[in-house]
Design a binder for these strands. Sequence first.
DNA 1: TGCCATCGTCGATGCGCTTCGACTCGCACA
DNA 2: TGTGCGAGTCGAAGCGCATCGACGATGGCA
Lengths: 335, 335
Amino acid sequence: MVTINDVANAAGVAPSTVSYVISGKRSISPKTRRLVEESIRKLGYHPHAGARALASSKTNVLALVVPLRTDLNVAVVMEFVAAAVTAARAHDQDLLLLTKDEGPAALQRVASSAIADALMVMDVEAADPRVPMLIALDLPVVLIGVPDHPAGLSCVDLDFTAAGAACVAHLADLGHRSIALIGPSPAVYRRGTSYATRFLRGFDEAAQGRGVRAVSRPCAHSYEAVSACLDELLAADPGLTGLVVHNEAVLPGLLSDLRHRGLRVPQDISVVAVCPDTMAEQHPVALTTVAIPAEEVGAQAVEMTMRRLGGHTTPEVRLLGPRLTRRDSTAAPRT
Amino acid sequence: MVTINDVANAAGVAPSTVSYVISGKRSISPKTRRLVEESIRKLGYHPHAGARALASSKTNVLALVVPLRTDLNVAVVMEFVAAAVTAARAHDQDLLLLTKDEGPAALQRVASSAIADALMVMDVEAADPRVPMLIALDLPVVLIGVPDHPAGLSCVDLDFTAAGAACVAHLADLGHRSIALIGPSPAVYRRGTSYATRFLRGFDEAAQGRGVRAVSRPCAHSYEAVSACLDELLAADPGLTGLVVHNEAVLPGLLSDLRHRGLRVPQDISVVAVCPDTMAEQHPVALTTVAIPAEEVGAQAVEMTMRRLGGHTTPEVRLLGPRLTRRDSTAAPRT
DNA sequence: TGCCATCGTCGATGCGCTTCGACTCGCACA
DNA sequence: TGTGCGAGTCGAAGCGCATCGACGATGGCA
């Protein structure tokens, strides 16, 4: 392995000088700098991560805790992860993947063995059991999602409450008087997953505010579940004209089932989906959506983390405003 | 931070003794062991990863290179990743995420800064430009996928050639005489992505062997692309009765479109899908599938990596036999 | 001409751990 | 009684780097 000493010898300077060239923490004459940089390139030198971590107490690694559940949407999770790695690399950090399944102990382990400099946590629940422990850790922590009591932790997420309201507002503006929310699977609600409950609240409040009849149902993502869910909804209110779908995985089945029932979108029933924009055009009818800005959230999470690492200590909660894009799946109800 | 010295002091032994208790590399009296273990627990000691890496030249970190493309199936990628982290943790390793976008240089960097002990690489292309560099690296490398010339690298994957053949055999056995393959998006073929070309080869050879008329089309995953693809296929051969779909993302659109055309599955047309088993039941018709054993492949990749790390130096190529599960989407063609 | 500040560089130290050689027992065996 | 040996423990060295204090050279100013 090529070490800083090899570089120093090749360049005819002291190892510490090489170190300063790399870090830029002291001024270096242009001549020396050139000499050293050339040696680095020629030898293909990369500082030993362990040694660097030991000497500087910094690893340049960010840990990301992801859920492995299959009952929430994998594609969205993947988008977050992708955005996070990309953003992390842009800040010269690497990304360590942890799973929610390992529980709070894993967070302890990572923190106290100095594997990573900071923690980013996805799939946050309203009363997340990891929160107290995360606070106790003295690492920078950024939550993707918002628990009931973030108490000192930074959070970033789509403003799901506003998103729920936006969906209702759109349908109400079009003239719909009876709408329904098809949500994530029951297990997601049972866990108190933060985005699900926040969306539901926004939906309910807005519906009440607008005087729109509104019901909601969780829905697992098998075809049968979707079908059963629609059965119930239509039986409960045959005058239903608008659907808000906060569950990307059921969209294909849902649209297919609606057509099967002879319900045309949007003529007979309007559909607003909450999903990444990339999914909007994959269906026979281009969907009106409120976008889940996974990419932006991921990038912001990294950015907030870097700020914390840079000494910016006050925690912040960033809620990204929802963006509704009207496409072909919503229209005024037939009178 | 609590160090090995703190533990040693608390237990009244030398630091090296603590180290030996942890590593088990020398015998320790039961009494001492108990004493030390108790101190470790009481103090919440975790060895400093950097220091450990520096002293032992082992990081206990595995790097996984994932593709970030959206033109291949994210859900499957996610399954791999999930399986890999889980398996890695079971071997007491952490998982570092790298992206294919960073190119070969990133692999160099990770290798020569000793960030990880080994590399696992997904989305391998037939003539993957990373292969020569990976060989030059003296880290254990395991490819998920098989390039044309693996030359000394370990590989693991589903045997896609056999999978292609299995799909044909199933349809041929049922009596189909004209079938078509709907493959991944054109870009995937253009890159020479290993699994796509291998599957196609198996499909073609088997069709020829069985005397079945067979054509194939790549297909992007927008609804229009699916529709256009079906138009072409049906125009080219109105007697088409069997479809092999090696592109999970188009399944919903495809099924929906078939119904739209008045083609019932399986009465009018049979469909065999290549996808993770979990997706088989999410459609109005439960799909006959050849499973993509993402979980097993991921686990095997980790296992092979650990073997290499354990000193087992001979590279191996493991191809997992395809498993076809018959469900409701295939039947004998109407005569 | 002499003094001080600044710039650029060097050497030494220590981060927390693993590992190697050495040392001390206690025991079996001759 | 002496010798050999293995089990159990210790101390020291060193892994590759960042960082701090120190030092020589240079230039500005009086």
